[in-house]
């Protein structure tokens, strides 16, 4: 097992390098000059030259890349080109908001997904199954920005139950924070429930047709026990995989939700930074997202190796 983990971790190194190179090249392929954006309309050519030098953008790409990697080795993400704020601080400030929104939406979505998916699989041909399937297909087919806008229109403008958008830190005003949280978290929860419930359904269906379930049924176990104790345990493994991966790429959906609901999280920071060509911030965020995805992947694989003895991890 230890050997497997070591091999698995070592195999991440080339992937990580590939990610850093692709990221670095892709961002610099994108036309647009951060210095021009920072200096604005009154800039003189001398200003542009001086600032480009100060920010180290006049060096060749390979040199910039190597310097960046060197700093990364010390976990130093550099400073934002625009605000000169340390990138680590910029992201650190926004992370709680993104995590709060993302995790709430995700957790609620996962719970609903399991309930709906189970209903759809167990009572396969019932009206309930059709309804839950319809629910998931309807909301999977609905772009999340349309859903967000609809929620604002109904709950904030028409009925005035919630605020149309905004944020205060939970530590500062918990009640107010939750009031702001409900609508954007609902978007995440509904989308998550719709997506994941389909996988719960299909993997539970698959599990229900395996031999050991037939054996369990043949032994005369009650259907509830069969589903809850036997099928569910196996069915949830792939679901948790997917959930783990979804968690790794959590902030992705946040890009649009955060924009609509003016939630000051990492997603919006990235889109803003990309628009300003604030390379250090974009690079740091993407890298963190990529690494968290890779680590989630690793943990899922390790969990698999522990949980499912049928999977062997010898050399291929």
């Amino acid at each position: 097992m230890t050997g497997y983990i070591v091999r698995r971790v070592l195999s991440m190194i080339p992937v990580a390098l590939l990610v850093t190179i692709a990221l670095f090249v892709l961002i610099r392929l994108t036309p647009g000059d951060p210095v021009r954006v920072i200096l604005g309309q009154e800039a003189t050519p001398q200003n542009v030259k001086a600032l480009r030098h100060e920010l180290g953008l006049d060096e060749s790409y390979p040199v910039q890349y190597v310097k960046w990697l060197g700093r990364l080795a010390h976990l130093d993400f550099g400073r934002s080109l625009a605000s000169r704020e340390p990138v680590r601080k910029a992201i650190g400030e926004r992370l709680p908001a993104t995590l709060e929104l993302g995790l709430t939406g995700f957790a609620v979505g996962l719970i609903f997904a399991i309930i709906l998916g189970t209903v759809a699989a167990v009572w396969r041909d019932s009206v309930w199954s059709r309804l839950t399937t319809a629910f998931s297909l309807v909301f999977v087919s609905l772009p999340n920005f349309v859903l967000g806008v609809l929620l604002i229109l109904l709950f904030a403008l028409h009925w005035r139950i919630f605020s149309p958008g905004g944020y205060v830190a939970f530590s500062r005003a918990p009640a107010q924070n939750l009031r702001y949280l409900v609508l954007p978290a609902s978007v995440g929860a509904v989308t998550g429930a719709a997506t994941l419930s389909r996988f719960v359904r299909s993997s539970l269906l698959e599990a229900l047709y395996t031999d050991y379930i037939r054996t369990a049924r043949a032994k005369g176990l009650r259907e509830f026990v069969v589903v809850a104790r036997h099928a569910m345990r196996n069915a949830l493994l792939p679901v948790l995989t997917l959930a783990g991966l979804a968690l790794g790429g959590l902030w992705e959906g946040a890009v649009i939700t955060e924009t609509i609901f003016t939630w000051p999280g990492v997603g919006r920071l990235t889109v803003d930074a990309l628009g300003r060509r604030d390379y250090p911030i974009v690079q740091a965020v993407v890298l963190i997202a990529a690494f968290s995805y890779m680590i989630a992947n690793l943990l899922v694989d390790i969990a698999y190796a522990y949980l499912d003895p049928r999977i062997s991890y010898g050399r291929r």
Binding site: V15, L26, G32, A289, A290, F291, Y293, M294
Partner: peptide, 24 residues
Amino acid sequence: GRYVDAQLAFPGILLAIAIVNALG
């Protein structure tokens, strides 16, 4: 396998934005 791993590690929407911006 490594290529796909690396691509999956990239946040999808950002990858798409970056590709579109690079291509125009």
